[in-house]
Design a protein around this nucleic acid. Structure first.
Lengths: 120, 120
DNA sequence: CTAGACCTTGTCGCCGATGTCAAGGCAACG
DNA sequence: CGTTGCCTTGACATCGGCGACAAGGTCTAG
């Protein structure tokens, strides 16, 4: 599979595939002409990357999942390192939820106060 | 009040005060030597800016609040434009809370699944 | 042979609040 | 006068995923 095909099948751009490669996440073979060659396994890797990115992971967080897939696991979350990242991310999300909740209360109060002072 | 004093009293840096000015939020007078001169009203303005920034507002969102203060209101949220921004921000926060909640569920599932497959 | 579609690497820009450094003017004190 | 500490403007870097472009190599169909 060439880079363009992979990009289309994985729902991303060639730019990003090269970017992931530069960051050590994807490792295509090279044809004699220098073109990158991807197999099915890489397609799965890229799909994993895209899903995790969409959830809010950074490339560094994703690395363990890719390593896990590459180690032969059917899903990328089955390895200790991946689980550790999942735990950390869950904690981060909870933290963010807390802060947002506080902000929400704050905003609500301010809005209520403003409307009480000068109803519009 | 010179810029350094204001920075200290408002809990920010001179860099940021000039930045807010460049974005039309703060309007100091100028002394004969070219130094910026701030009065008490500007201190209140900068405090408002800092509070709203801390809550997650962007400089553009903050502009109406500053205008409201500058128009003589005791608090920056008493004007229609400010209230509109508060409403919009509240909606944004709710939206973000929704998405984060979904992500949280997603993470929780993935974690549970990983632990069920290979307990660690 | 040529046009077009693909590939290669490399570089620049974006966003937005902020740090940091540089070169120079001004003020106050000894 | 010299030093110190404030001020001025201006410019560059940061983070991170991504778009976009340029200059050139490669391949394929007509």
């Amino acid at each position: 599979m060439l880079i363009g095909e992979l990009a289309e099948q994985a729902g991303t751009s060639t730019r990003m595939l090269r970017y992931y490669e530069a960051h050590g996440l994807v490792r295509p073979a090279r044809a004699a002409n220098g073109y990158r060659r991807y197999d099915e396994a890489e397609l799965r890797v890229v799909r994993e990357i895209r899903e995790l990115l969409a959830v809010g992971f950074g490339l560094d967080d994703i690395r363990p999942f890719v390593a896990c897939l590459r180690a032969g696991n059917p899903s990328g979350d089955a390895c200790p390192d991946s689980v550790a990242v999942l735990r950390r991310k869950l904690a981060e999300v909870d933290d963010c939820l807390d802060r947002l909740g506080t902000v929400r209360r704050h905003l609500q109060e301010q809005l209520t106060h403003a409307l009480a002072t000068r109803p519009q």
